[in-house]
Design a protein around this nucleic acid. Structure first.
Lengths: 187, 187
DNA sequence: ACCTGAACACCGTTCAAGT
DNA sequence: ACCTGAACACCGTTCAAGT
């Protein structure tokens, strides 16, 4: 469901949106390295120079994608918290890893070192807002609470990354949701 | 300590080594995206086509770098185990995170999704050998031992990645070794 | 056997010019 | 205000040719 090979005139201010939509598709399909600005322009039916009316550079386009990624992540986490599950920590951990697996290339982009390199404030703010949602589950303001929260975060994030990189092998008949649950539950 | 702007004749079979040495320097300084094959050839004082006598493609060169990365990682982990520290788990965790922080770009390359994409067996083997060193600390062959080992690994790996990405803030006066120790010690 | 020179098909980006 | 066409300075890669 989305703008694709339309040759309609884009003079209505929707080119930016069309570019982001198409870019997200290309990202999911080919990864960050496969997301060329000229390819993107071609896919949207516009000249190679046109995207530069809306994004300063390829990096700026990637940053915009990463920002929407953090926003989706924030929404997903808030939805979990709002549903008041019996075990909030486990539920948010599951959702964290699920998000990473369901949005692999986007998740990787959100943590791309090249993007932080030219650290734009927009990305930082979106990331901070995203991680702030995790604090709903943290163990208060004590020093030991902070360590416990960091330990939980690193475990879940590491699990997401290693699963994404295909470094953790499932046992025969084991399903991934159960594995996630077991590792998160593991004190 | 290394070959640099030498204009000596490379007809002795050492060009491959010189390329890898220079590539590692460029990788550490400019990251993977900044490692251009033409730049590399220039740095070593050779024509743009010369590297192709020793590496099929840029991806193959990156893979060779990643393989040496896994070998260094393996050596570092084995050294820790051989030193028989009182708390093996904590010591290996510290070494794991240290390695990541001290070899940031290399560590990222070792887990680069683009490299796995065209999954060469050499990379997989080097990675498997590297992670096999971690099993020296695992909790046996029981199901719960496996989960405990995976939980420890994901925690340490997540900590490494989040520190690398500058996502974890140190408290004033806090030193990073202590933070690592606290998080790893946290059951 | 190992390297060079020149070429090919691409990039991201810029800039004058069009509407 | 928004987009096109053509150009610039690069890439990775190939291939004939040199020694």
């Amino acid at each position: 469901m989305s703008t694709s090979l339309s040759n309609a005139p884009y003079h209505h201010g929707n080119l930016r949106h069309a570019l982001l939509d198409a870019a997200l598709l290309m990202l999911q399909r080919d990864g960050e390295a496969g997301l060329g600005l000229r390819d993107l322009a071609r896919a949207v039916g516009v000249s190679p120079a046109a995207p530069y009316r809306h994004f300063d550079s390829r990096a700026a386009l990637l940053e915009a994608l990463a920002v929407t990624g953090f926003q989706r992540f924030t929404a997903a986490m808030n939805a979990v918290a709002a549903s008041q599950p019996p075990d909030l920590l486990a539920a948010m951990g599951q959702a964290y890893v699920r998000f990473a697996l369901d949005n692999a290339a986007l998740f990787r982009l959100m943590f791309s070192p090249q993007l932080k390199r030219d650290n734009r404030p927009g990305l930082r703010m979106a990331a901070d807002a995203a991680f702030a949602t995790l604090r709903q589950v943290s163990g208060g303001d004590t020093a030991s609470g902070r360590i416990a929260a960091l330990a939980a975060w690193t475990k879940v994030h590491g699990l997401a990354v290693l699963l994404l990189d295909d470094q953790i092998a499932l046992q025969p008949g084991e399903d991934i949701e159960a594995l996630i649950g077991a590792i998160i539950g593991q004190q």
